[in-house]
């Protein structure tokens, strides 16, 4: 191939490409967009109608007992709700886990499957930004999912005049317990989901990791009860996500546990549970950061 000789009248035509001169919104805005997009995705917003069926169906199931509780309380005239606010999310745990199992792979597995990770990192965001945005979105989604039914029963309880002071403390304590649960469960679920590009596998793995420890811990606690060593029941509670949250809400937020024989954890066990939750969440985030260290994935 011959190189065309430069001639005097050779010129590059201006064919009208334009520079971008608008505002550059920067990393913060990219992070925020990723957060909003993920949060909406968890509830199926901005996705086809059949992706909305399961999240909203699960939310309806989640909120139904709250509505029933208020209706029962206002007709019978008692001022006690059937389920404590602090234990509400825990007593609906299978629904919470299913919601997470739908949402977590939606947030991270699809990015891996369709190889969109390099696209994210071609924007001005780092892997820490990606992980924080996804984690915040999942925590937020779960907090809304579990907190809104509480709000429904709180507002309903106020309308049914169940006693303002009682209801408000119960509601606030319930929100704190829900927040602890959201952070812990979202961290674990996001970590598990980030390891597989396949949605079906992610769903199964998230459910397995979140529920199996609970299934294993309960019979062991029941065994401790038959051995009359009830102090150990609380310590066994450290080994599953559900019993960790259960222990914390019973120790610090005035709730009662679902442990065998209704054993209450001691303050020491409560502190240990708090530390375990903090440690687990930190570990999950650290492992998530490690997971995305390789850009190609």
């Amino acid at each position: 191939m011959t190189i065309p000789r430069q001639t005097a009248d050779a010129r590059i035509h201006d064919i009208g490409y334009r520079r971008y001169e608008g505002a550059r919104l920067g990393a913060r805005y990219a992070r925020y967009s990723l957060f909003v997009h993920s949060l909406r995705g968890a509830f199926g917003l901005g996705r086809p109608a059949r992706s909305k069926v399961l999240p909203w169906g699960l939310f309806a199931v989640m909120a139904l007992p709250a509505v029933i509780m208020v209706a029962v309380a206002s007709t019978t005239g008692t001022d006690e709700l059937l389920i404590d606010h602090t234990r509400y999310a825990l007593s609906m745990e299978p629904i919470v886990v299913l919601f997470l199992a739908m949402a977590a792979p939606q947030l991270v597995s699809l990015d891996l499957r369709y190889k969109t990770m390099p696209l994210y990192f071609s924007r001005p965001i780092t892997r820490a930004d990606y992980v924080t945005a996804k984690f915040a979105a999942l925590v937020g989604a779960l907090f809304l999912f579990t907190g809104l039914p509480l709000t429904i029963s709180y507002v309903g309880g106020l309308l049914a005049e169940l006693g303002f002071a009682d209801q408000t403390t119960g509601y606030l304590q319930g929100l704190v317990a829900t927040a602890v649960l959201s952070v812990l469960y979202a961290g674990i679920a996001l970590l598990v989901a980030s390891f597989t590009p396949r949605r079906g596998f992610g769903v199964a793995a998230v459910i397995a990791v979140l529920t199996i420890p609970g299934f294993a811990v309960y019979p062991l606690q029941a065994l401790m009860e038959t051995q009359d060593s009830e102090g150990a029941i609380g310590w066994f509670g450290l080994f599953s996500p559900a019993s960790l949250v259960d222990g914390i809400q019973a120790a610090f937020l005035g709730g009662t546990t679902g442990f065998p024989a209704g054993v209450q954890p001691t303050t020491l066990q409560g502190i240990a549970s708090l530390l375990a939750v903090a440690g687990l969440v930190a570990l999950c985030l650290a492992l998530l950061l490690r997971r995305y260290r390789k850009a190609g994935i």
Binding site: F215, Y218, P219, A222, L223
Partner: peptide
């Protein structure tokens, strides 16, 4: 673990096999 801690016990066996084995596994 159950056998090591508590020895043979029919009720706990039912709890483990029924509650964990048949209901979850």
């Amino acid at each position: 673990a159950v056998r090591a801690i508590g020895g043979a016990d029919d009720r706990v066996t039912e709890e483990v096999l029924g509650g964990f084995g048949l209901a979850a596994m």
